[in-house]
């Protein structure tokens, strides 16, 4: 659904651009390709690493670690496991649903989900390349710390 919107938007604007100015359109496509080429190798590396991590950390294993009775220890472990790498939301949420079925606690799941989408140790080299060391460390550490606040409040309200 979202892809349809994004593609329609891209196609419509591209057509509009083409009618207005062919050289500019060519230029923009060249730029698009260049950016894509620039990021593709790293992205392929990330995807492969995520595949590896998800194969080793099966839902059963993770559910055991962050089970409903695991308390704050489970929250910390969930946050740490989630920090290994960055995962897109469309992978993270279906995974969370499976974890919940396998007995993960909601508070622990909240910490896991937060760091899963916001903190990535494996993606740090890429982030450092784009924004520098201090920025990358600061952002990841802050996101890690705040995942506990999210877990705490979700634990109070939902758990």
């Amino acid at each position: 659904m979202q892809n349809i919107i994004m593609y329609s938007l891209a196609v419509i604007l591209l057509a509009l651009s083409f009618f207005k100015d062919k050289t500019k359109t060519k230029q923009s496509l060249k730029k698009a390709w260049k950016s894509f080429e620039n990021i593709f190798p790293q992205m392929l590396g990330m995807i492969t690493f995520i595949g590896l991590a998800l194969a080793i950390l099966s839902p059963e294993t993770i559910s055991k670690i962050i089970g409903g009775a695991s308390g704050w220890f489970g929250v910390v472990l969930g946050a740490v496991v989630g920090s290994v790498t960055l995962i897109p939301a469309f992978v993270a949420f279906p995974m969370a649903a499976i974890l919940l079925e396998n007995g993960a606690g909601k508070m622990q799941l909240a910490a896991f989900l937060s760091t899963l989408t916001m903190v990535g140790v494996l993606t740090m080299p890429m982030e450092i390349k784009f924004f520098g060391k201090k920025f990358a460390f600061l952002r990841n550490i802050l996101a890690f710390v705040f995942s506990f606040l999210t877990a705490f409040i979700i634990g109070k309200v939902v758990g």
Binding site: Y7, A10, A32, M43
Partner: peptide, 15 residues
């Protein structure tokens, strides 16, 4: 996911 994002970025850059 990527092609429309990069096409839009390219268009933004030029236009």
């Amino acid at each position: 996911i990527l092609p429309p994002i990069f096409i839009l970025l390219g268009l933004m850059d030029v236009w």
